[in-house]
Amino acid sequence: MTKQAKLIGIARRAKSRAPMETLEQVGCSTALGIDGDFRGKLRKRQVTILSIEDWQAACDAIGRDDLPWTTRRANLLVTGISLPREVGAKVAIGSVMVEITGETDPCRRMGNAAPGLEEALRPDWRGGVTCRVIEGGNIQCGDAVHLVAPS
């Protein structure tokens, strides 16, 4: 039996450098991305998605198992799915559809959070993906996540 891919974490921040606020559910719109997140107005980077498997691999690479996923400052945490490493790929999360616009490049803030973390997030898009919302709706932890075949 295969493990179902699902959304296991939601976080946002009201402004740059603000602490991450975790949520159980949130609305998403094509105009503003994650409700209440300051990046929503950035069309190519409305939402960032990180897989727990990639996060754990990065933490293992630096010998740390105590870093919460919100250290990465991503909006959504998923499990059981290999996120596409290509611009234009589509991912459905509950009733919401996002399109991948690029890689979430690790920044020096990751190195400040834990020595070596910035470098550990660099290989193979391990730091996650940036997306824009193409179909809005509400999402909640536990929602199914799946790749959408190109039309």
Results as ranks from 00 to 15, higher is better:
E21K: 02
N75Y: 06
K15Q: 15
A31V: 12
T130Y: 11
I49M: 14
R43H: 11
R12P: 05
Q4V: 12
A58S: 10
A57S: 03
A11W: 02
Q46Y: 05
A11R: 02
D124F: 09
A89M: 06
G9H: 00
L32N: 14
E103N: 13
G94N: 02
G94Y: 03
I8D: 06
D37N: 03
I100A: 03
T22M: 12
L117W: 02
P68I: 10
W125I: 03
R73L: 04
T30Y: 08
M97D: 09
I34T: 03
K3D: 14
A11E: 00
A18S: 13
L117N: 04
G111H: 02
G9A: 07
R108L: 15
I62D: 01
W125Q: 02
R85F: 04
A57M: 04
P123Y: 08
L23A: 15
I10N: 06
A113E: 00
A89G: 07
I8Y: 05
V47W: 04
G27L: 14
S95V: 10
C107R: 09
I10M: 11
G36S: 08
T104R: 12
D66Y: 02
L7P: 00
G36C: 09
G27Q: 14
S82Q: 08
Q140R: 15
W125G: 02
M110P: 00
A113I: 03
D35Y: 12
R109D: 14
K41C: 11
M20A: 05
D37L: 06
D65A: 12
Q4L: 13
S29C: 05
L76T: 01
G27F: 12
P68F: 08
A92I: 00
G33C: 02
D54E: 13
K44T: 12
P123N: 07
L42G: 03
T79E: 15
R126T: 05
L117I: 09
R39C: 09
